[in-house]
């Protein structure tokens, strides 16, 4: 027993030493940074006209570094597939929602959908965008799921799966299409960029919302055979 405790203590001391070493190293790295970092901000601002949007963050996420966002969408999809393939998780214990939750979700969900649409639209010129709008949509989904709502049979099958891959699919189709026309992968022509970005963002918003709500539900919505 005492032997065990002693090794535990020694291990803890070792951990403290290692962590202090890492902390010291990090502090050194931060202090060694040059005081005037040469960021890419200026480059983004000079090329903002060709990006099709007015918000530099959206321009970077959807145009200049669109590839990163594409891969993020893929990560979300793979995460959901991973959760679904675990399978067989018990559903929540069904408890009828109280009157407050019931009324509140009825009031809030339309507002949340409106907020999501606003965030998506405003993302072109101000803070906002697909991920923020999608997560607001996902929150609406979570609220609905909490108040006992489940996807109907008609939507739980093919339609749900279509929405879940819509964002990534449209992104890949747009990228490949532009590649085939003669540009590089995901290189939008400046005249089309604004519309394309809005289209891709709208699809991504729906996909992100559906994916996050589906992640919250955990198991795959079952399609019960019609009686």
């Amino acid at each position: 027993m005492t032997d065990n405790q002693q090794t535990g203590k020694a291990f803890r001391l070792l951990l403290v030493l290692l962590l202090s070493a890492i902390a010291g190293w990090l502090a050194y790295a931060v202090l060694a940074l040059s005081s005037s970092p040469a960021g890419l901000g200026e480059q983004v601002v000079t090329h903002l006209d060709t990006s099709g949007v007015g918000n530099p963050v959206t321009a970077v996420l959807l145009n200049f570094r669109g590839y990163d966002t594409l891969l993020e969408m893929a990560v979300l999809l793979v995460a959901l597939l991973g959760v679904w393939s675990l399978g067989g998780i018990a559903d929540y214990r069904e408890s009828p929602p109280g009157p407050v939750l019931d009324t509140l979700s009825r009031l809030l969900v339309p507002v949340l959908i409106l907020v999501a649409a606003y965030l998506l639209w405003v993302g072109a010129d101000a803070p906002g965008g697909a991920f923020q709008a999608g997560s607001v949509l996902g929150a609406a989904g979570v609220l609905l799921l909490l108040s006992g709502w489940r996807l109907g049979n008609r939507f739980a099958g093919l339609l749900l799966r279509a929405v879940l891959v819509l964002g990534l699919g449209l992104f890949v189709i747009a990228g490949t299409g532009l590649f085939l026309i003669g540009g590089a992968f995901l290189e939008y022509p400046p005249s089309l960029a604004g519309g394309l970005i809005l289209l891709i963002e709208a699809a991504a918003t729906m996909t992100i919302g559906a994916t996050l709500a589906a992640l919250f539900l955990g198991n795959r919505p079952r399609v019960e055979p019609d009686k």
Partner: peptide
């Protein structure tokens, strides 16, 4: 932008 994403995804979802 990051603040919005943090509040919605980081804290909320």
């Amino acid at each position: 932008d990051v603040a919005l994403a943090e509040a919605a995804i980081g804290a909320g979802l």
